[in-house]
Every structure is written in structure tokens, then in C-alpha cells.
């Protein structure tokens, strides 16, 4: 019978914190990343080898994407480590199912490892990190304007005549819709990653358990599809998080600049009038 469970299984408790097999797998993929980083560092040279050249290509691609999204080099470079970490971690964690028999290692009848991104709590965490970070940065740049985007009190205050009331109500409603949109960002980005990876595993498991003849060669195309979609989803997750962060941060930066310019103009005008 198929052994498929959506929640990850708890292996042991570390104090009050339950440690699931997905968490163990996440640490394994972090370890793989560290090993790759050390390997690249040891053979670092000005004439890049194959691995180094590939990494340089990847870094350049993400750097270009960030520059296109933010339009400002210093601001884009600030978010580079986060995006690159997300991309590398998800790309490595998605490929864990390529290694044969790795999910058959059992501890007390529970698999020791499970695809880290096929656990909804992990992808939800990644999505929350991205969305909350974008809000914190936008709040620190232009707090009042950022809150005003969602609770549009300015539109109500701007009512001068009865015919403005309709417009103001529409504005308030749009603000609430934006608030719901922020929530749905978290759900969409995390469910996309979770659904793709979990579905890949389920598909291979179903085909393997169909009959004795479909255990060996038949699941191969689906495994290839899983590898491909693992890389694509890592890229999609990082590009979407770039878009989420850039959308909020760019408006906040524009608001901040407008405020500073206003202050400057006021400072310039004051001595002239005095």
C-alpha cells in the first residue's frame, strides 16, 4: 500500500521542539551546499573551472535580474544574498530525491529523510520570510505612506463634496483588496513550491506501486520531469520573491525620495521668504 502523508513525520523531540524528517533533510541539503561551497573555494582561480564558471553564470544572471527589478545597483546588491540563498537552497533541497534509496532509510518505521520542500511548513516559512521582509523594508523607508496604501484614510480625509464619497469608498475597498492580496502572495508562493514537489513524489510513488512491472524503467521519465521541475521551481521562487520585494521597496523608495525633495524645497524656500 502507498505510504503518502502530507504532514512530515516527527522523528524525535529536541526539548519541546519536534524535529521532523523534512527538517533533517533541510539540514542535509544545507550540508551539501556547504561542501559544494568549500570545494569551489579550494579550486578558486582567475581561470574558472567548470563548476566555478557555472556558479559565476548563475550569480551574474541573478544580479542582472535584481538590477532590472530594482533599477538601482546599491539597493539591488542589498537583496542579493537573500535571493541567492533561497535559489541555491531550494535547488539543492529539491534534488534530494535523485539519490536512490535515500527515502528508504527508516528510523523506528519512519523515513529518516523526506523532500524538504514537500513539507508545507517549510515552504510556508520561506514565503513568510520573503513577504514579511519586503514589508519591513518598505515600512522602514516610508512608514506612513506604506500603511496608507492599505488603510486609505487619506481618501476619506480628502472628501470635499458629496460626489467624492463614491470615489473614496472605492479607494478604501481597493486598499482592503490589496491587504488580501498580500495574504494571498504568501499562500500562492508557498503552495506552488509545495504542490509541485509533493506531486512529483506522489506521481513516482503511484507509478512504482501500480504493479511489479512498473517499478524499474517506467518511472524514469517522471523522475526526469521531477528533476527539471525542481530547478524550474527554485528559479521561479527566487524570481517571484525578487518581484514581491522590488514592487514594495520601489514604491517606498519613491515615496521617501518625494518626501526628501519636499523637505529640501521647503528648506530652500524658507531663507528666500524670510
Amino acid at each position: 500500500m502507498l505510504d503518502i502523508s502530507v504532514p512530515a513525520k516527527v522523528l524525535f523531540h529536541l526539548g519541546p521542539v519536534p524535529v521532523t524528517n523534512a527538517v533533517v533533510a533541510a539540514y542535509v541539503s544545507t550540508g551539501v551546499l556547504v561542501v559544494i561551497a568549500l570545494l569551489i573555494r579550494r579550486s578558486l582561480s582567475s581561470e574558472p573551472g567548470r563548476l566555478q564558471a557555472f556558479m559565476e553564470l548563475l550569480f551574474e544572471y541573478i544580479d542582472n535580474q535584481l538590477l532590472q527589478a530594482f533599477g538601482d545597483h546599491t539597493r539591488a546588491r542589498k537583496f542579493f544574498p537573500l535571493i541567492m540563498t533561497l535559489l541555491l537552497f531550494i535547488a539543492i533541497a529539491n534534488q534530494l530525491s535523485v539519490f536512490p534509496l535515500i527515502f528508504q532509510v527508516l528510523v523506528e518505521d519512519k523515513p529518516l529523510l523526506r523532500l524538504a520542500t514537500s513539507d508545507l511548513s517549510q515552504t510556508l516559512t520561506l514565503g513568510l520570510v520573503v513577504v514579511i521582509l519586503s514589508h519591513i523594508v518598505a515600512l522602514s523607508m516610508a512608514p506612513l505612506k506604506h500603511i496608507g496604501n492599505y488603510f486609505r484614510i487619506g481618501a476619506i480625509l480628502a472628501i470635499r463634496s458629496p460626489k467624492d464619497i463614491g470615489n473614496a469608498l472605492i479607494e478604501v475597498f481597493l486598499g482592503i483588496m490589496d491587504l488580501i492580496g498580500e495574504l494571498s502572495k504568501i499562500i500562492s508562493i508557498s503552495c506552488r513550491l509545495f504542490g509541485n514537489l509533493f506531486a512529483g513524489d506522489v506521481m513516482v510513488a503511484v507509478i512504482v506501486s501500480l504493479s511489479a512491472f512498473t517499478q524499474f524503467i517506467v518511472p524514469m521519465p517522471f523522475i526526469f520531469l521531477g528533476i527539471f521541475s525542481g530547478f524550474v521551481q527554485a528559479l521561479v521562487f527566487s524570481l517571484l520573491s525578487i518581484q514581491f520585494i522590488a514592487g514594495l521597496v520601489n514604491t517606498a523608495a519613491a515615496n521617501k525620495e518625494a518626501r526628501l525633495n519636499k523637505g529640501k524645497q521647503a528648506a530652500l524656500e524658507q531663507p528666500a521668504t524670510a
Partner: peptide, 28 residues
């Protein structure tokens, strides 16, 4: 090609939502 793949993955998301819902219905 990369832009196309990203756009396709975003189009896919509604399908993924229904997949998640049916997986939850089946296994949870």
C-alpha cells in the same frame, strides 16, 4: 526561454492549488 518558463510556472499555479486541495482531500 527563461521568461517563458517563469510565465508558464505562474500560469500553472491555479492548477497547483487544485492539486493541493485534492491531495488534502485524499490524504488528510
Amino acid at each position: 526561454v527563461p521568461n517563458m518558463i517563469v510565465a508558464m510556472a505562474i500560469c500553472e499555479s491555479t492548477g497547483i492549488y487544485s492539486l493541493v486541495i485534492s491531495l488534502i482531500l485524499l490524504f488528510v
